[in-house]
């Protein structure tokens, strides 16, 4: 605690300049809800903490043209209360509802959730179905990467140390069906054992004409599943079809993780949770 410094630049430029100068010995901090835990556990040691939580460039949730822009420093409470998200990215809004506790939602940021690279990050499946890209700033300028590219594995961030995520660009969607669900060990304040997000629409004949799905907390990094998206698109949804899609999803997931002890539960629960979440389509 005594050997770590704290800086809070006023502008993004200053922050990037500090990062550039102290690359490798600086850790970005926003809400601090992961950083503080890691500092206490001794798993994080750093010379400097660079506070980005108040940077104007990282704040705000807005529609810009055809894009939905969510600032990296938007807190989970802001996401929870956002009417824009409720309309254009309802699964993301829902992912904030059972996220940690109110105290944590009040400070935890979406940028921190993504950059922490926990397989269990609640916002990730919802971001994935909106094909979100992260906007990264460095002294060299801006670039965009798909959010799936940020984690190279559990808790392993693939971003260069001199970059800051400033915001996320989502494809907004106004759909009839969307949800985020998670399974935790208790009703509140529980990290996901499993999480899922989807959105869908049906055409006039009741066929699924649009379907996006992503699974969290089961694979090293949360992922879309294109196979079941394709399987269900164009179909009249009934319980048997959804059940079968859930089975395929479970099979695909186990193919990635292997059949470890914890997979016994997950294999069935993936199918089960998928059924439960998507059932309103029936």
């Amino acid at each position: 605690m005594m050997n770590t410094g704290y800086v809070r630049p006023r502008t993004l430029e200053d922050a990037l300049a500090f990062l550039a100068e102290n690359s490798g010995k600086t850790r970005i901090v926003a809400g601090g809800t992961d950083v503080m835990v890691d500092l206490r556990a001794g798993t994080l040691k750093t010379d400097y903490l660079l506070d980005v939580s108040r940077l104007q460039a990282l704040r705000g949730i807005e529609i810009i043209g055809n894009d939905l822009s969510v600032g990296a420093a938007a807190t989970l409470s802001e996401i929870y209360n956002s009417a824009i998200l409720e309309a254009h990215a309802p699964a993301l809004q829902k992912s904030a509802v059972n996220f940690a506790s109110k105290q944590i939602r009040n400070v935890a940021t979406i940028g921190g959730n993504v950059a922490h690279c926990s397989p269990c990050g609640d916002t990730l499946p919802a971001l994935a179905i909106h094909e979100a890209r992260a906007v990264l700033s460095s002294p060299a300028g801006e670039r965009q990467v798909p959010i799936e590219a940020i984690a190279s594995g559990p808790y392993m961030c693939a971003l260069p140390q001199n970059e800051i995520i400033t915001r996320f660009i989502l494809k907004p969607a106004t759909v009839a069906f969307a949800d985020f669900q998670k399974i935790g060990r208790r009703k509140e304040l529980a990290v996901a054992r499993m999480s899922m997000a989807y959105m869908a629409d049906k055409d006039a004949e009741g066929r699924i004409c649009f379907f996006r799905f992503a699974l969290g907390a089961c694979t090293p990094t949360p992922q879309r599943n294109h196979r079941i998206e394709a399987m269900l698109t164009g179909q009249i949804p009934d319980a048997a079809r959804i059940w079968e899609a859930g089975r395929v999803l479970a099979e695909d997931t186990i193919a990635v993780t292997g059949r470890r002890a914890s997979a016994v539960y997950k294999e069935s629960a993936i199918q089960g949770l998928f059924m439960r979440m998507v059932y309103p389509l029936v």
Partner: peptide, 9 residues
């Protein structure tokens, strides 16, 4: 009991 996930309410 949620028979699909094992969650108990």
């Amino acid at each position: 009991v949620d028979t699909l996930t094992g969650q108990v309410t």
